[in-house]
């Protein structure tokens, strides 16, 4: 499998972008499938060049809240304000969509510190998108999921349904201020959008381009997955993100099991774990089959009732079917 270098990616996607001129869809359309990134943990040196590049590339998307914040009811609704802590970069915040996670692990009997970039996994079937009640979150055919800051009301449902608790809230910004700021909503949710605007221009996401060690590789998901599997096989390594939550568009390759990384990392709010994650949308989507079967069962029951009535009293059933019995008092 030929690896996708940054240069070849730029060349290919630039061509596709020019040919198709259809925004971020063009990059995905070029390969006909969503894009995924491979993150080779062995290469990451924790220099945070990706974090800085993310700030620089996405600074204009960061929230500029209006203060003072409106009083919110009931009192249990808390303000989420990161605007005075914009330089926090050791966790995910509305102003920091990518951070470097540190994990202490044992490799060849020696204690070693691994560093790895953490951001939105861009799930293949993202619960944040599918369960957003307002339509503020959506997924592009290129596989990236985005939150529209102009529509989001900051209810944090996406944060709660995200298995990695990635979206982060900032109060005092967004549509809720123009609706019922005291009674509904609480700002806007922010997270990595995988530099959709740069992708649309045929450029790489900023974190990938800035990395001096080429930790991340981006390309069509099937190729990236095959590349990740081949790499894991070669180094006797492990994958994360290939099957988690039903599959994601971010696949980590590690020399040590992810249980070790998870155990050796600090995680909590804004610091996603690397634990096993079942497909969160699977149960609901399986129940969709019941929605196809239920009407058939309902119609079948009505037909069965008619047949049974016909067998029990053929004459009455016939008469009942042919003689209208109207209720004159029934309303129209």
């Amino acid at each position: 499998m030929k690896p996708i270098s940054r240069r070849s990616f730029i060349r290919g996607s630039l061509g596709a972008a020019c040919a198709l001129a259809a925004g971020s869809r063009s990059v995905a359309a070029a390969g006909g499938e969503p894009l995924a990134t491979l993150i080779d943990i062995r290469k990451c040196i924790g220099c945070e060049a990706c974090v800085e590049a993310c700030h620089e590339a996405n600074g204009d998307k960061f929230p500029e809240p209006r203060k003072p914040y409106p009083k919110m009811y009931p009192s249990r609704v808390q303000v989420a304000d990161w605007s005075e802590r914009r330089d926090v970069n050791d966790r995910l915040t509305p102003y920091n969509w990518l951070y470097i996670q540190h994990a202490t692990v044992i490799i060849d009997g020696r204690e070693t510190e691994l560093t790895l970039p953490r951001r939105c996994m861009h799930c293949a079937n993202p619960p944040c998108v599918k369960l957003c009640p307002w339509g503020a979150a959506y997924q592009e055919p290129s596989g990236l999921s985005r939150i529209d800051a102009d529509i989001c009301l900051g209810g944090n449902k996406c944060g709660e349904v995200c298995p990695w608790d990635v979206p982060q809230r900032q109060t005092g910004v967004g549509l809720y201020l123009d609706l019922l700021p005291s009674l509904a909503g609480n700002g806007v949710m922010y997270k990595c959008d995988r530099c959709y605007d740069r992708l649309a221009r045929g450029e790489l996401p900023a974190c990938i381009e800035a990395c001096p060690e080429e930790v991340q590789t981006i390309g069509p998901r099937r190729r990236i997955l095959a590349q990740a599997q081949a790499l894991a096989e070669k180094i006797g390594g492990h994958l994360y993100g290939a099957s988690e939550n039903g599959g994601t568009h971010t696949i980590y390759v590690s020399p040590v099991p992810f249980e070790q990384i998870n155990a050796g990392s600090q995680y909590g709010p804004g610091r996603p774990p690397m634990a096993p994650v079942a497909d969160q949308m699977k149960t609901g989507n399986r129940l969709a089959a019941a929605m196809i079967l239920a009407p058939l069962a309902g119609a079948g029951a009505a037909v069965a009732k008619m047949l049974r009535a016909g067998q029990e009293n053929p004459g009455q059933a016939e008469a009942a079917g042919s003689t209208p019995r109207r209720d004159a008092s029934a309303e129209r």
């Binding site: 929605m291 239920a294 009407p295 069962a297 309902g298 119609a299 009505a302 037909v303």
Partner: peptide, 9 residues
């Protein structure tokens, strides 16, 4: 859906 289909049929 089952109930609607039953009633409609």
């Amino acid at each position: 859906l089952g109930l609607i289909a039953y009633a409609a049929t």
